[in-house]
Design a binder for these strands. Sequence first.
DNA 1: TGTGTAATTGCATCATTGTGCAATAATGTA
DNA 2: TACATTATTGCACAATGATGCAATTACACA
Lengths: 117, 117
Amino acid sequence: MPRGMRGMRGMGGRMMGSMMDPRSRFFMALASDQRVRILELLKGGEKTLSDFTKALEIDVSVVSRHLMLLRGVGIVSARREGIFVYFNIADKRVFDLMALSNQIMSDWFKQNQQMFE
Amino acid sequence: MPRGMRGMRGMGGRMMGSMMDPRSRFFMALASDQRVRILELLKGGEKTLSDFTKALEIDVSVVSRHLMLLRGVGIVSARREGIFVYFNIADKRVFDLMALSNQIMSDWFKQNQQMFE
DNA sequence: TGTGTAATTGCATCATTGTGCAATAATGTA
DNA sequence: TACATTATTGCACAATGATGCAATTACACA
């Protein structure tokens, strides 16, 4: 009695990053504490890599990679000006997205608060 | 010349799952092809674990775990009825969320289409 | 051409995720 | 109690993600 799909092992699992469905890929970009922090900093307007680095206290290379990833899904835009690269939100609706998700979670938490009393 | 924050190594990286910021955690739940597929199936109303398993063609245990995760962040609810457990969307606004993210991506793609011509 | 600052890229490392199989729970029924 | 069906959990493994350091690229300017 087969239970689900058997056989076809040999590939630990997962989906191999770049060939992931665009939808999941988009959410993946938001599924990181550091990247969320980056986006919140961007609420205050465009910033350079060094700005983020100072604020977040993590290595420049790490911030750079997070920003690359966010650019890759169209959440962040970049503009070079001499030595500096200014990063900014590409589509402000991302903030609506974050606000809505906060709403959902917050409502759910209120509704289930009793469980922790 | 310090570049970002040096020292404090010894922890491969990351944030250790459960102590991740709730916001990132919520998006993390949506950042998976299989889970997105599960949610789309739920657009058609509540379903049992076996229903998903048949539709997705992945092992029951895998589907079960995805559903657990989705329940953990309040996206999916579950109700047991005899042998069966019926899963459903806990908050339909999740669909708004997905629609909005699709909008954002689609618009961004249109805008940058020229780059691939 | 050389120097200085900003940003990106090449590694190596390690925790976490996704997955399948097997075993165990949870329920209902004969 | 024994059996059948559905769902969850334990375990092991491969691939991916996040990170830090070092090296390299990009620019501007003397």
